[in-house]
Structures are given as structure tokens and as C-alpha cells.
Design a binder for these strands. Structure first.
Length: 782
DNA sequence: CAGTGAGCGAGCTTCCGCTTGACTT
């Protein structure tokens, strides 16, 4: 009788499975399928396009083990319950499970819950439903469309680009690169404008009678002369308070964390990369400290709200408690999970420092979300000037009740910070009062372009556009970095002069000071490759590259999910014009060069161009049609096709430089595939970083050669000339080298490396060639 | 390890979203 058998309940995550098994107890065996168990075959797109886009699914190799186990458990079980996530992907996973485990979708129990709490799970088991095939079809449409876009566009790039990188394009990654590319161009085109901002310093007595300084702001003047005229007009003036406004203000806490807001705050507060945050969160989740970390929901379960409320009452007092329900701003959210929160608000010691910092951040954000508003008092004082009609404004802000700010304050991105009115405490002022005038300044301030994206601010932007999902933000960033479309790096700022006019003791002084501008840390920069590929895709595939494309097709997926549209009809409508564009592009588009004319080389009269070559960005003097062969030079890592000047380009041709003779052989310096190097007597020595290949002298170069030669000798234990094998000393101990390849010695062989015979070395290499030690798939090189 | 850049063609690459370990270096 089936009753005696256990029920098998399948969820996506193994950590979830453990928790649920505890809640459901004896009748249920809870197992995990580890996400998707089937995917489209890779050959020939895995889609029969001419047969109404029929997908060809396979179980990937790495999923075979799980599938086998679930199959055998399903056979032995009384009933199978599908409890995958309540969203499009979760519904599809359940359907794939039916297909693979041989279950009938019409009578297999499908249950859902948004939170892993006892009441939610009990309630779910009471109300099983069956699979929603419309939702499954919406997922299939999503999957197939992404496969089509990716597997049609990428090969176009392979054909049209001369680089041998494994280029790729896709609905999400290509738009992510576009955002970074356009921001860069915006910055390059930005014309900074200086204006003079008036700021006066006064003093008045505070409550205890002590004089304190405070600031008041005046107008901005576009020209230095206007600012000077204004200061001039203030000479000898009397300043008096004309008006005082006191207004209450409030600040409310931010919603509990989702994946993207957690990534943003961890980046702003701790400087974690997006993938680091996810790794740490994964650990916290597996140890049962926090709820699921890939979510777009800001919702907290009732049980959690109760726990949080109690904690606030006990730890901070009842006046700090204010329960709130947050709504998701984002339309594309699927909300299959809760917000990210601690599983319990009890104080908890997390061992690992980085994990602890992230845990504490989550704890504080969660607690703060149910705390009272902070109450402020904002004071604005207008100060009149006796000699002219202008008024100065002083702002003050006093915190009356700290509320949630006692625990947590959200940081802001550079992008969102407007120049702030000076905040702080104003001394008590009265209308008619004449505060003591100290000085007035007009400081030149320059407008700034939007800052470059950080990983986290890119995620924020993508989420706003509805592009990508919590589980893909980190992988998307890895992809565009790996493809070389984007680089993460620092940029040194440049020094800039700015002017200050100071009015003090009825005299105006003019000063010039220096500031650093344009410095960036850990920002995303597009490479020339990224810029060129983006331009190409924008030109030929405007629709896919449009920032609204995902939102539009999401609307159609929703219609499929509601049963208002057939999924293969939707794909048909998308595919027909898209495929035409692909074909047209393959036929008509020129190879992607990204060429930019820089001018004429004055010494030869030949044109100079910057462009993409087989090995990356380069400059070229003369053309291939000329009788004389053109000259080529590679751009430096910090240079770009778009911004390099003729002068900088010509400078690159100063290499190779012959430095002179050393030990009867020429010493020359150049930049090669692996950076700057010295060449001498047919041997190469890489040039240490502190030397500039354009500046280095023979006297500096010879010690480097001598030094490197010595180091190499010290590394060499033995050389077997005939076998062309070297026994070398490396950072992990002695090893063998033959040609370009290294071979590991066994521990025992390492100990007697100096006594190895050529025969044994040869044998070792043969054996290692026959059985390469690493199991991980390695890429074949042509 | 080291100076390439044209074009041809073999054989290969590639997407997004769900999930975690198993792998060395």
C-alpha cells in the first residue's frame, strides 16, 4: 500500500531541503534538485526552428548524478511533491522534473511558498495545485529567445572581428557593456564648467554664550569678474538676520535587502566586489544564519517581523518600533523568496571576519527597516547685506529623535550626491541680530561628469532596466570582464588649478589653489574591444541593444504566462525579422576595425590611423597599398583608440630603441607581447616596472641584464643538452622544463633533483605527457 | 615567452538562469 511509503518533496536548494524536512517531519523525505536539471542541447542551437521552435532538452553531464538519485527515490516513494520556487524558472524546473521522473503533470502535486517558515510550509501542503503550463511556456520562450540571440549574434562577431578571442554577445551582457561604453564617452565629451560659489563665515554665541562659527551661502557666478564685483559690493557692509524658518523633517529607513541592494551597500560600506558579497552570503545561508541570498523581494515574513519587533522593543525601547510593509518598486520582480534577513535576530557570533561584517550589515538593515523615522529640525536663516540686495542663506539641521539612525544609515552612490548645503548645528539666531562677519569667499567649483560605474552601481542600473536576475548579476560582470570588453581598474586624477577670491578686513585677495580631479578607484572602463563591438551591435542590431528591449519582451512573456499569447507565435514574430538582420549583416557589414584617422606623420607624409588589429588596439603609419610596408605599434594599456592623439601615436614608434653596446652586442629596448623588454645577444630580459622603455639608458640597462642572468643561473640546477631538458628551481621546488612546457617532479624526485639522470627526466616527461595530471577541462590551443 | 597586423580555411568558440561543490594553482 502506497501509504506506508514516504512522500518525496523536491526543492531547488539543499540548504532549504534540510530546513523543510525538519518542519515537515516523518512522512516526508525532502530532496534538492540543485536548480535546473535539463537545458537546451548545444549542437545546432538545440532548437528545431522549422518545427515551431521545438526545444531539444538534455540532462547535462554534471546533473546526471542528481537526476539518477531523484529517479530512484521517486520510484520508491508514495507520492512526489514539487516545491520548486514560485516563479517562471521554478515552474519550469518542476515541469522538467515531471518529464524526467516520468510523472504526469496533470496529477502531480505542485506546492509553493515564499518563505521557509512553519506556517507557510504547512499551509502550502494543505493546498497543492498542479503545474501551470502557461508559466512553463513563458520560461521556455525566455530560454529559447536567449539561446537564439546569443548563438546567432556571437558567430556574427567571430566573422566580423579579426581578433581570435572567444567573443560573445547576448541580451544581457551586450547591454551591460553598452552602459559602460556610453558612460565613458559621456565622460570624454564632458566639458567642465567653472562657477564661483559665494560662501560667508560668521560667528554668533551659542546657548552657553561661547562664540561659534557658521557658514552661509550666496549665489553662484559664472565669471570671476562677476564674483569679484559682488565681493567688492560687500565691502563695509553690515549683515543682519532677516528671516528664520524652522521646519520639521523626517527620514525613513530603507527596505530590507534584496540581492542588488545588498551588493550595493556591501560595495559602498566594505568595498566588496559583487561576487565576493555573494560568496560570503552563500556561506551565511548554508550555515543557517540568513535567508536565501538571491532574491528580488523586500518582503519579511510575519514570523520575522514579530521577532524583529521584539528585539527592537527589548534592545531600544518601544518608541523605536514602527512596523512597515515595503513594496517592490521593480515591476520585473518575481518575488519567489523573502528579503535577505537574519534567520533569527538573536545575537550571533560569526567566526570569519568578512562574513561577520556582511552579517552585521544585514542584521542592522533588517532591524532598521522596522524602526521609527528619524525626526529632524531644519533651520534656514536669511542674512541680509546692507550694501546690496543679495541675501545669504545659512542651513542648520538638528536631530530631534534618531529613530532608525541609531542602528543604520544607508550610504549613497557618488552619482546621487548633489552638492550639499552645509549641514550642522546653527547657533540660536534672532531676526534683526547682526552676527559677527569673519570673511567671505568666492570659490571656483567645476561641474563634474557622471562617475564611472562600479560593479554594484552597474547592477543597480541593470535592475532598474529590468535586465538580468539576482542569480546572474555577479556572473554577468565576470563574463564581460573575461571577454575583455571591460576592465576594472583605478585611474589617477589630474591636478587642476582653481581660483579663490577672499574678502577679509575690507580687502579682496586673489588666490590660486590646486585640486585633484578625475581620480577613480575600482571602476569599470570599456576597452577598445568593448567600444568597437558595442558600436557594431548598435549599428546592426538596434532592437536587441535597446535599453527597453528586455522590458518589452518581458511584457510578452507575461502574456504567454497569462495564456493570452502562444509562446511559439511570440518567438516566430521575434525570429523572422531578427534572422533577416543577421543574414543581412553577415552579407553586407564590413569587418569591424574601429578605425580612426589621427593625422599625417610629418616626417614621411603618410597617414596615421588607430584601429583594432589581430592582437588588439594599434596605430599604423601608411597603408598596405603603399609600396613600402606600413609600420605598426601596439597601444599602451592605458591608451585608447578614441582618445589617443597624433603625438602620442607617433611616440609609440620610438621603439625599438638601440641603447648601445654591452659585451660587444647591441642592447635594445622594446615592448612585446608580454610588456617592455631588453634584448641582448639574442636573449630577452623583461624590463622591471620602475623603468620607462622610452627613457631607460644603457647604464641602467646593463645591471638589469647582469642581474637577470645571475638569477637565471641560480634557478638552473642542471641542463641535459641532448634531451633539451632543464632542471630548474621554481617557487614550488625543482621542476623539469622542456621547450615551453613545465613538468612537475614528485616529492621524492625533488629531493634528489641535483642527481637526476637524463634518462629518468625523459621518462618522467613521457609519463606526464601520457597522463596529464589535471582533471579540469583544459583548452586546446591550435 | 618577445618585433605579428592580409586572407583563407580547418575546427572551435557562444546565450541566460536555476543551483552547489570539486578542482588545482
Amino acid at each position: 500500500m502506497a501509504k506506508s511509503l514516504k512522500n518525496l518533496l523536491i526543492v531547488e536548494s539543499p540548504a532549504k531541503a534540510k530546513t523543510i524536512e525538519k518542519i515537515l517531519g516523518g512522512d516526508f523525505e525532502v530532496k534538492s534538485c540543485y536548480g535546473h536539471i535539463r537545458d537546451l542541447e548545444k549542437n545546432d542551437m538545440g532548437i528545431d526552428i522549422n518545427n515551431h521552435f521545438a526545444p531539444r532538452y538534455i540532462v547535462p553531464e554534471e546533473k546526471e548524478k542528481v537526476v539518477k538519485e531523484l529517479k530512484s527515490l521517486a520510484k520508491k516513494s508514495g507520492e512526489v511533491w514539487l516545491a520548486t520556487d514560485e516563479d517562471r524558472e521554478g515552474e519550469a524546473i518542476s515541469w522538467h522534473l515531471c518529464e524526467v521522473l516520468g510523472l504526469n503533470p496533470a496529477d502531480t502535486k505542485r506546492i509553493v511558498f515564499h518563505e521557509i517558515t512553519k506556517p507557510a510550509i504547512r499551509a502550502a501542503v494543505e493546498q497543492p495545485r498542479t503545474l501551470d503550463m502557461n508559466l512553463v511556456n513563458a520560461q521556455q520562450a525566455r530560454r529559447i529567445l536567449d539561446r537564439i540571440v546569443g548563438f546567432e549574434l556571437s558567430p556574427v562577431l567571430w566573422r566580423k572581428m579579426s581578433m581570435r578571442n572567444n567573443l560573445s554577445a547576448g541580451r544581457v551582457q551586450s547591454v551591460a557593456v553598452r552602459l559602460i561604453a556610453e558612460r565613458e564617452r559621456e565622460i570624454n565629451a564632458f566639458k567642465s564648467i567653472g562657477t564661483f560659489k559665494v560662501e560667508a563665515l560668521f560667528a554668533a554665541k551659542d546657548i552657553s554664550g561661547k562664540p561659534v562659527n557658521f557658514k552661509a551661502e550666496g549665489s553662484r557666478y559664472p565669471a570671476a569678474q562677476d564674483a569679484e564685483n559682488f565681493l567688492q559690493s560687500c565691502i563695509g557692509a553690515i549683515y543682519s538676520v532677516k528671516d528664520i524658518q524652522v521646519k520639521p523633517g523626517r527620514k525613513s529607513p530603507a527596505a530590507p535587502f534584496t540581492t542588488s541592494t545588498l551588493q550595493q551597500e556591501a560595495s559602498r560600506k566594505m568595498g566588496y566586489s559583487v561576487s565576493r558579497t555573494m560568496m560570503l552570503a552563500q556561506k551565511l545561508y548554508e550555515n543557517g544564519h540568513i535567508t536565501y541570498m538571491r532574491t528580488d523581494s523586500v518582503n519579511l515574513s510575519e514570523v520575522a517581523v514579530k521577532d524583529i519587533s521584539e528585539k527592537i522593543s527589548v534592545q531600544y525601547g518601544k518608541e523605536y518600533l514602527q512596523n512597515r510593509k515595503f513594496k517592490n518598486k521593480n515591476e520585473s520582480a518575481q518575488e519567489a523568496h523573502e528579503a535577505i534577513r537574519p534567520t533569527s535576530m538573536d545575537t550571533l557570533q560569526v567566526e570569519d571576519t568578512d562574513c561577520r561584517k556582511l552579517y552585521e550589515l544585514i542584521w542592522k538593515r533588517t532591524i532598521a527597516s522596522q524602526m521609527a523615522d528619524a525626526e529632524l529640525e531644519k533651520t534656514t536663516a536669511k542674512i541680509g547685506i546692507s550694501t546690496n540686495k543679495e541675501e545669504l542663506t545659512a542651513h542648520g539641521e538638528v536631530l530631534k529623535f534618531e529613530g532608525f539612525l541609531k542602528v543604520y544609515r544607508e550610504d549613497r552612490d557618488e552619482e546621487d550626491i548633489e552638492e550639499e548645503a552645509a549641514e550642522g548645528v546653527l547657533p540660536p539666531l534672532a531676526v534683526g541680530q547682526q552676527p559677527e562677519f569673519k570673511e567671505m569667499k568666492a570659490v571656483e567649483r567645476f561641474s563634474r561628469p557622471a562617475p564611472r560605474f562600479t560593479e554594484a552601481s552597474l547592477v543597480k542600473k541593470l535592475e532598474e532596466l529590468g535586465i538580468g536576475r539576482p542569480s546572474t548579476y555577479a556572473p554577468t560582470i565576470s563574463t564581460i570582464l573575461k571577454r575583455g570588453y571591460v576592465e576594472k581598474r583605478d585611474k589617477e586624477g589630474v591636478k587642476r588649478d582653481f581660483r579663490i577670491l577672499v574678502l577679509k578686513s575690507d580687502k579682496i585677495t586673489k588666490l590660486t589653489e590646486q585640486e585633484t580631479t578625475g581620480a577613480e578607484k575600482s571602476k569599470l572602463f570599456p576597452t577598445d574591444l568593448g567600444l568597437v563591438v558595442t558600436d557594431f551591435l548598435k549599428q546592426y542590431f538596434e532592437n536587441i541593444m535597446d535599453y527597453g528591449f528586455t522590458a518589452r519582451i518581458e511584457g510578452e512573456f507575461d502574456e504567454v504566462a497569462q495564456g493570452k499569447m502562444k509562446w511559439n507565435k511570440m518567438l516566430e514574430d521575434f525570429y523572422t525579422p531578427f534572422k533577416q538582420e543577421v543574414n543581412k549583416t553577415i552579407e553586407t557589414a564590413e569587418r569591424i576595425k574601429g578605425e580612426r584617422e589621427l593625422g599625417v606623420d610629418s616626417s614621411t607624409g603618410k597617414p596615421v590611423v588607430a584601429r583594432m588589429g589581430r592582437y588588439g588596439p594599434m596605430v599604423q603609419i601608411g597603408s598596405t597599398e603603399d609600396e613600402e610596408k606600413p609600420r605598426f605599434a601596439k597601444l599602451k594599456a592605458t591608451q585608447s583608440i578614441e582618445t589617443i592623439s597624433l603625438e602620442e601615436a607617433l611616440d609609440l614608434f620610438r621603439l625599438p630603441r638601440n641603447l648601445g653596446k654591452f659585451e660587444d652586442a647591441d642592447v635594445s629596448v622594446s615592448i612585446g607581447r608580454f610588456g617592455p623588454y631588453l634584448a641582448h645577444d639574442k636573449k630577452f630580459y623583461s624590463l622591471p616596472k620602475e623603468f620607462d622603455p622610452y627613457q631607460v639608458t644603457l647604464d641602467e640597462a646593463t645591471p638589469i641584464i647582469v642581474e637577470k642572468r645571475k638569477a637565471k643561473e641560480e634557478r638552473t640546477i642542471k641542463i641535459f643538452e641532448k634531451e633539451k631538458i632543464q632542471v630548474l628551481r621554481g617557487p614550488y621546488g625543482p621542476y623539469l622544463k622542456q621547450g615551453l612546457r613545465n613538468y612537475k617532479l614528485s616529492k621524492e624526485q625533488q629531493e634528489r633533483a641535483a642527481d637526476l639522470t637524463p634518462e629518468e627526466a625523459l621518462k618522467t616527461i613521457e609519463e606526464l605527457k601520457a597522463n596529464p595530471p589535471r582533471k579540469t577541462a583544459r583548452k586546446k590551443k591550435a
